[in-house]
Design a protein around this nucleic acid. Structure first.
Lengths: 333, 333
DNA sequence: TTGAAAGCGCTAACAG
DNA sequence: CTGTTAGCGCTTTCAA
């Protein structure tokens, strides 16, 4: 037979008082005599009483807010630093944050689980099927990073890669580069057919026909970057600049190049995307298209503010905001 | 005037059905006609209805579990990798995880807030006053990392630095080192008087009188490590081995040494603590006392399992388990 | 200073 | 297939 949970009722009985008196004792309220207070506390401790967080939240009027955050991985500092920013902002607002990584389930599973626990969901989703995401969220607003929201109930903080990459290419050309390569992530899309990322599309569009010489897919890790660079270098001699999907892979690419005896930035310029602080302490330090994670977090939080305020007014049209990455020139390019 | 929350009652009224029928529609239950189902769903969408997670969790018998995790920082991969392990394990058990960093509040504040939201708390705490931690937790069990629990309601996963550091020193001596230095964290203790960390105590005890030549305090970051090394090197000529509080600082120390033209490991051996995977891709790669984060996470989860099972049987004596770090020899030592 | 009553919003067990 | 009746465990009036 399963032991029943110990409730406030049990404590009240044990201490010979009413439930209300137990509440008074537990919450250090004023109107209670020290004697009964102590008696109740002892009884509670004796029984191992622990208030139900669901019951107390239900009964009390001042609701607590919680948001869910889904990052792609805990093994990439970009995401953990973003999580740090989100946590700071959430803390300032008194929100709890439930953090998950996309490695723990499919988008739909994660959203569906979180929807039962939080008031809003932020995160990185693949989102090929936005309608199903929205329905999995059962009315809980979802703010997606780097995926333009197109159905009600979903919202987004987009990244304007076109302008960022344009600035990058212009300066790269000024510095004498003319033959560009790209190392692209092979896992940035859901299981299923590979789809070019927005980074790639922006790059292809801007590099112009002929000037973008070669593209390889690689695993989204440092090792993948090293490997990708070596394939690229072998397949496409004469490259003088390589853009890499993210900084982690770019740091790997630098390693891969060094292992081949290729000098950076003399033989080839390497540029990442993200703006990790780690990139400033490598040798050479990493040039990159920097994404302002604080701005991302703030923007997302602002959307949630709006949504939470109007949450009783019916369904909400998509809110779409944009953050523009900025080139950050260091030594590798 | 504040708008009231939209409840299941409102939806029922709007759709002209009972509350129970609304539940049936929302949860895709069997016994309902497609027509009314759709009508209810439409009404719910129209009103922007979102079920209260507190009410539904209270009412349904199958409770959901959540744990809180407090890490020291999101800027140190050691902690985020630990978080990744904890998340994996929690996910496998169907637990939600609320993550916080110690930068967001004092130990007491964090514990007190989390106590209202979760069923157990894991984390890094300074814990000079264990009794107050326990009382802030209001009966919610707390599992501390690297702090031996000494009062009921608190539990711990300790690290056995003595054995780990002993192995480290023995091998370092075999390799010819004899004059040791230590770069210690200045922030590993709560605001207040500095207290030597367990790492330092173990090191001092084992290095023996006279063989431990110099100790500096430095900020717990890469920059702090670089700075610490330079002070140490200037103040204490003749050192041939330096142990550093953690890998991040050790990587900084390596940089600091290189900036001074000091060769590693020829002029001085540098050893970190943590076992970050990042340490394998630096130049030179970092030797370290590796802490098995998966083991830490598993051990903590095991304690929580025990606690959750017996949660109705009264208060719980402290459970204390230990994990022993292992030397990991790479190039820097 | 304490107790009794009335919900919070939802789900579960029954009836119909 | 649908509605009614009870709670879940706690907090909040309001009396006493």
């Amino acid at each position: 037979m399963a032991r029943q949970r110990i409730t406030i009722e049990d404590v009240a009985r044990a201490a010979g008082v009413s439930r209300q008196t137990v509440t008074r004792a537990m919450k250090d309220m004023a109107e209670i005599s020290p004697a009964t207070r102590q008696r109740v506390l002892d009884a509670a401790e004796e029984l191992g009483y622990r208030p139900s967080r669901f019951a107390s939240n239900l009964a009390s009027s001042q609701r607590s807010h919680a948001i869910g955050l889904v990052i792609a991985s805990f093994r990439n500092p970009y995401y953990t630093e973003l999580a740090a920013e989100v946590l700071d902002i959430a803390t300032a607002r008194g929100w709890q944050v439930v953090v998950c990584s996309r490695e723990q389930g499919t988008d739909l599973e994660l959203i569906s689980t979180l929807a039962g626990q939080v008031d809003a969901i932020l995160g990185y989703f693949v989102a090929p099927e936005q309608a199903s995401l929205a329905s999995a969220a059962r009315g809980v607003p979802v703010v997606m990073f780097e995926r333009t929201a197109a159905v009600p109930g979903l919202h987004s903080v987009d990244l304007d890669f076109e302008h960022g990459i344009e600035a990058l290419l212009t300066e790269l050309r000024n510095r004498g580069a003319s033959r560009f390569g790209l190392i692209e992530s092979d896992t940035a899309t859901e299981p299923g057919p590979y789809q070019p990322t927005e980074r790639r599309r922006a790059y292809e569009k801007l590099a112009g026909p002929g000037s973008l010489d070669s593209i390889v897919l690689a695993e989204e890790s440092m090792r993948g970057g090293a490997d990708g660079f070596q394939r690229l270098w072998n397949d496409s001699p004469g490259l003088d600049a390589v853009l890499v999907f993210n900084d982690l892979m770019a740091m790997g690419a630098v390693h891969g190049a060094q292992a081949l005896g290729v000098s950076i930035p003399d033989d080839v310029r390497i540029v990442g995307i993200d703006g990790l602080s780690l990139g400033s302490v490598t040798t050479p330090s990493l040039s990159t298209l920097s994404i302002d994670r604080l701005a991302l977090a703030k923007t997302a939080a602002g959307i949630v503010d709006t949504l939470l305020e109007t949450q009783d007014a019916g369904p909400h049209e998509s809110i779409v905001r944009t953050v523009t990455p900025q080139p950050l020139w260091r030594e590798s390019a």
